[in-house]
Design a protein around this nucleic acid. Structure first.
Lengths: 213, 213, 213, 213
DNA sequence: GATGAATGAGTCTTCATTCAT
DNA sequence: AATGAATGAAGACTCATTCAT
């Protein structure tokens, strides 16, 4: 019994100790757990689809109790939203890196198409996850700005292209669809069906589809 | 013995009676139950997605006991496959009506695009269902010839177009993706976002995307 | 429509015809169906145990509608009882063939042991089925005279042996158990574990167990 | 920050408090639930056979929700295995108590027979349960060392007896069957049919069956 | 913060039995 | 005699969520 008391004392001291010093660490630890959970959810989505995500499975994969999920996320939905945003952020970062604001509009548009092509190849999983969550029966993610590249900035770019007479005068969504779906299909063919990794013909298809003349 | 004969007579009369009036109804009811179940499943898919289909919900919607589903379908999977084939048949019928084998290749290809455009508008649900079931986590439908327009015949048409130098020399799947995804997006914009119902600009996008030169 | 009426007429005539002539055939047909059902149940018991018997499976195996089972048997229990009696009859026939009433008591008792040994080898399935049904959770067969060899006649034989001072003065059930369980085990070892097919040591064990002195 | 420290203090006090009083109760409750479930399963097996065990019934008997079973056991099979091992342990303990390694072989063998006799009387349920689970259609318990007394040690004892010329030169399984089945039958007669509780004639039967001369 | 326990609703599936035809 | 349809009950199992500790 004494031993247990001692254990408790030690535990308390540790707790105290922790509180005074390593709060940063704590937060990091917490953040890390959050990260781990999101990562586990990601893995499940990639393996078995978004519908297969369950708190049980996620917790098991992380190695924590099922109920712990609810410490880090209010809901299963909130978890999925976090995963979604996580991937969205990755996409955003990618575009921040790859799209320059300079150059003429045509160059920017072509750069965007190429960037999407590269993204589809390098971050296949990311895109799959975004699609999966969006396509869920009662998706927790409803906003239209969800699809990668379809955020405000890209939509603006497209609109500018239309206004400048570079792109066909149709709803920008159609342009974005042309880019997105062809790029996705191309990366699928390359990844899963041994299609040659030459993006130029696909780039041509897309450009012909969207360009005004 | 007489009794038995009488019984038989009565039986025969009953049989006769049935033939004149109610047999139609009876048979229809039997076949109709199957139909009703499929219809209920359809409705659920349209409303909440394929993952939301459950034997319980389907049965409730039809107004029968849940276990009855298993009289008409071996499995939930079999039910979904039936729904799928049901819709597939609809698509096939549509194309049998709308695509002529005559005319030059270019005309045929353009006719196909227009047919897809019309199909996407008139049979929105059908296409949504096919997509939904195909995209299911562990889809009971695996064959590639599933997506509307991606069956053998269409693929052949595309290949012919490529061989004749009319279409770009890329994997026919890419052509089909261009047609399918733009047409889908267009119909979505029209249906759900008040986009003007003018297919011609979309047709132009598609054609520019796929045509050589 | 006329055709259908005709069909009905023909049907009626056939029915009549049947009633006047081939009642014998009918009965044979019926008996055969009954037999088929019992046979199917037997097969299922042997393969998966008595608990695995279901009207569904039996009907499927026979190739008839599930509900037809209830034409030939009032109950699933009645069916199992029939199977049981079927096998019991087989055992009875075996003993009628193999046990002679003549000879002195010792010879008769030894003959019985040998007969049991042979039965366990030749009619393994039969014995397995009898055991299975008897051991069922809520067995439809409750009577003690069920186990092969434990019927009146055998019990009488044992009692006579006891009275004559040939067998140990214990409850005949114990004698029967000695015979039955050792014989079963022996046949199991032979059938399933490559034990040499020499019954004599087993016969010795049994005889030593039961014989007085 | 202070608040957090206080919380910790309180927490520590609570922890301490727990250690002095209620922790015992708590832990017992947890372990006890497992025990209760096993006990309920036991009761059902004894009353209606192993096939009658269902998660629903077990849960109802314990007074918990059916799904709770799955907190304590991965499977229904795992539950049954646990019940099995539970009983097996009881048997093992019994033999550890009742069988001495000392004395000559003959004495040991006779001691084993007597021990089995006593076990069959005192732990009737235990043996019934072990038999029941072993005999299940698709038993979760497959190992041969399952039957009470048939574990390695007993088999070794038998083999030693054979080698020493004390027991008949037959498969040890046959010896074990002789012991087990006669002892079972005897206890059944005593328990359920008012047979006199004198083991000596049964001991004689068994010994005559197994002994070499 | 972390956990184990609890639960009720839901998942698919099988079954024995009845009934109208 | 034969069948297809119907059904309610039961089967095992999963899940999202809550709560006391």
């Amino acid at each position: 019994m004494m031993a247990i008391i001692k254990d408790n004392t030690i535990l308390c001291q540790l707790e105290l100790f922790r509180n005074f010093g390593i709060i940063e660490d704590m937060k990091k630890k917490d953040a890390h757990k959050t990260e781990q959970i999101i990562e586990a959810a990601r893995a499940i989505i990639i393996a078995d689809g978004a519908a297969a995500v369950s708190t049980t499975k996620v917790a098991k994969q992380v190695g924590i109790a099922q109920s712990n999920i609810y410490i880090y996320f209010k809901n299963k939905d909130e978890l999925l939203i976090s995963v979604f945003q996580h991937e969205q952020a990755r996409v955003k970062a990618f575009f921040d890196d790859h799209i320059s604001q300079k150059g003429d509009l045509t160059a920017q548009l072509k750069a965007y198409i190429d960037a999407m092509g590269e993204l589809a190849m390098t971050d296949w999983d990311t895109m799959a996850i975004l699609e999966q969550i969006k396509a869920m029966p009662k998706s927790p993610v409803l906003t239209d700005e969800a699809l990668p590249g379809s955020d405000q900035r890209v939509q603006g770019l497209m609109q500018a292209g239309i206004d400048a007479g570079i792109l066909k005068n149709v709803d920008p969504q159609l342009h974005m669809t042309a880019v997105f779906s062809l790029v996705r299909r191309y990366s699928d063919l390359v990844r899963n069906h041994g299609y040659p990794t030459d993006f130029s013909p696909v780039r041509a298809m897309i450009w012909d589809a969207v360009s005004a003349k």
